[in-house]
Structures are given as C-alpha cells and as structure tokens.
C-alpha cells in the first residue's frame, strides 16, 4: 500500500518536472536556431555555472516554502555572510576559517528567523522582512562603504575552478540537489516538512514536532545562503555590502517556476533546479542575442505567471478527475 502511494507520488513528481524540463528544452531549441553560440560546451557550462548560485540559494528556500513559509532575508543574508567570511579570510589568511564563519553567520540568521517564526509564531513574511533590514544595517555598518577583495587561490577554486572540464559550482549544485532530494523525499524529516505545509493542524495532531522542524528549515535556508555567499566570493574575488540584494526575488521565482506552491506541501528541490535553469537560460539568451536587458524583469514576471498558471490548471484537472 505504502509503496504504491510512493510510486504514485513519484510519477506525479516526474510529470511536473517533465513539463518544466520540456519548457527548458524548448527554450534551448529556440536559442539554438537563433544563435550559433548557444549550443556549445562552453556556453552550456556557463549556463550551469550561473544557475548553480541561484539554485544553492533557492534550494534551501524551497524547504521553507514547502512548510507554507517564506524567507525574504536570504539576499541580505548572502551579503552579510560574504562580507564576514571575506574579512575573516583577509584577517587570518585562513580560507577554511573564513568559509566556516560564512556558513556560520548564514546559519545564525536562519536560526533567528526560525525562532521568530516557530517559537514566537510571527508571520514568516514579516519576520524575515524585519530580519532583512536588521541584517542589511549590520552589513552596511560593518563594511562602511568599502570593498574586500583578493582571496587565496585554493579558496577561489570553489567558484572559478574546474574538475574534468566541469566548473566546481556545478558539482556543488548536483551534490546539494541529491542531498536535498534525498532529505525531502526519503527521510522522516522530509515527510514531516511536507506534512506541516499541507496541513499544519493535522501534522500537529499526528505528532510532528512542528516548532523543531520549522526551526530546522529556516536554519537550513540560512546555511545555504551562507554557502551561496562563499561561491559568490570565490567567483567574484570580492565583496561589498549590497551584493545580495539582487538575489531574493529571483530565488523565490526559481522555486515557484519549479512548481513549489506558496500554499505549502507541494514542490520539489529538483523542480527548483529546473526553475533556476529556466531563469538563467532567459538571461543567457538575451545576452547572446544582445537584447536589451531592460526586458528581463518583464520576461521573468510573465514566466512566473505562466508556470504557476499552468500548475494551477493541471492540479485542478487532477482534482476534478478524483
């Protein structure tokens, strides 16, 4: 009984991912026709590498959204984590210590979010929005308008290195895709997170430790932002106070395009990967065809609407059939 349920769930998941992969492939086909430069190993590696940063951030966020929550502070989190990691690295010369601090700061911010949301029962939207301002303020104060740059080559490999011709961040992306998929689909923790999002009251009654699980997802989201900040640092070789600002809404958009529902309980980490790829392909295509990047917010908006519209239709269709 349980295994058939699982197979049904898997099939549904494959179907939603399938639609999205088809959409991503369609974009690829169009771009192949429009630009000779698109279908080259170099460019595809490019797309994957650019998508990896967005995915790392969006994967943690996906878990939060699965619980019907939201984390608006991830962008600000990247900024502070990167700046602290950078200054520790400059100060001590130790890449390892800097990296540990970066992830540690991310985790701390995530924990704080989790405490506000789970223990104080604040609306996630507002608690993390307040956190966004607090974290920005600390970052601005800490950096005082300066730029930190020039990190050890060993550390920089994390962002700009290659292994067997594939960029290191792409490996990171697939490692965390596997981890995320395993965690959310194959562990009790994962099942409980879905349960909280689907029906919090029912989850509580069936003995899910809601406070602990909520703190866990916000902490994971924070730590992933910390990790993403390290990849950013390693790629850019520099950091300033405002680097995170441009990330929050694209990360949410990636999760939504990937089929994660803001109502909670529906969505997958692998879907988020496809979402991140679609967003990256759009930018890549615009650059290859040298289309003015001013079109980007508009196109992103349309894609988000289309993706969620499509999801809503299919879900309604399924419910009607039941």
């Amino acid at each position: 009984m349980k295994s058939t349920l699982r197979i049904a769930a898997l099939a549904a998941e494959l179907k939603t991912i399938g639609y999205r992969l088809a959409a991503a492939l369609a974009i690829c086909v169009v771009l192949t026709f429009l630009s000779d430069a698109f279908l080259t190993t170099n460019n595809l590696m490019n797309v994957l590498r650019q998508a990896s940063l967005l995915f790392l951030l969006a994967s943690g966020l996906t878990l939060v959204i699965l619980t019907a929550g939201l984390d608006l502070s991830v962008g600000a989190n990247i900024g502070l984590s990167a700046c602290i990691a950078a200054s520790i690295m400059k100060l001590t010369g130790s890449a390892l210590l800097g990296a540990a601090c970066g992830v540690g700061i991310g985790l701390t911010i995530g924990l704080a979010n989790g405490l506000l949301v789970a223990l104080m029962r604040m609306p996630p939207f507002i608690a993390t929005y307040g956190m966004l301002w607090v974290v920005h303020g600390i970052t601005y104060w800490f950096m005082a308008g300066t730029t930190l740059y020039g990190f050890p080559p060993a550390f920089r490999a994390l962002g700009s290195g290659y292994f067997l011709g594939v960029p290191i961040p792409v490996y990171l992306m697939f490692v965390f895709l596997t981890l995320g998929a395993f965690f959310s689909q194959r562990t009790t923790y994962g099942q409980e997170i879905y349960a909280i999002g689907a029906n919090r009251e029912a989850a509580r009654l069936s003995g899910v430790p809601i406070v602990k699980r909520l703190i866990l997802v916000y902490a994971v989201s924070g730590a992933m932002a910390g990790l993403a900040s390290l990849v950013f640092l390693a790629r850019m070789n520099s950091a300033e106070g405002d680097i995170g600002e441009a990330f929050t809404l694209p990360a949410i958009a990636a999760a939504l395009i990937g089929g994660t529902s803001l109502f909670g309980g529906i969505g997958t980490v692998s879907g988020t990967l496809v979402g991140a790829l679609i967003l990256t392909l759009v930018l890549n295509g615009m650059n290859l065809l040298t289309i003015d990047a001013s079109w980007q917010p508009l196109v992103t908006g349309v894609i988000v609407l289309l993706a969620v519209f499509f999801d809503t239709l299919t879900r309604r269709g399924e419910e009607a059939r039941k």
Binding site: L249, I252, L262, P297, L298, V299, T300, V304, L305, V308
Partner: peptide, 19 residues
C-alpha cells in the same frame, strides 16, 4: 484561477517594473 496572491503579484510586479 485560485493562484497564490504572492505569485500573481510577483508576476505583475515584474511586468510593471519592466514596462
């Protein structure tokens, strides 16, 4: 369409900003 308001308005926000 019973779409989540956050998503709907995230989409229209992108459109208004772009326009």
């Amino acid at each position: 369409l019973k779409m989540p308001p956050f998503v709907v308005t995230l989409g229209t926000m992108g459109m208004a900003e772009g326009l």
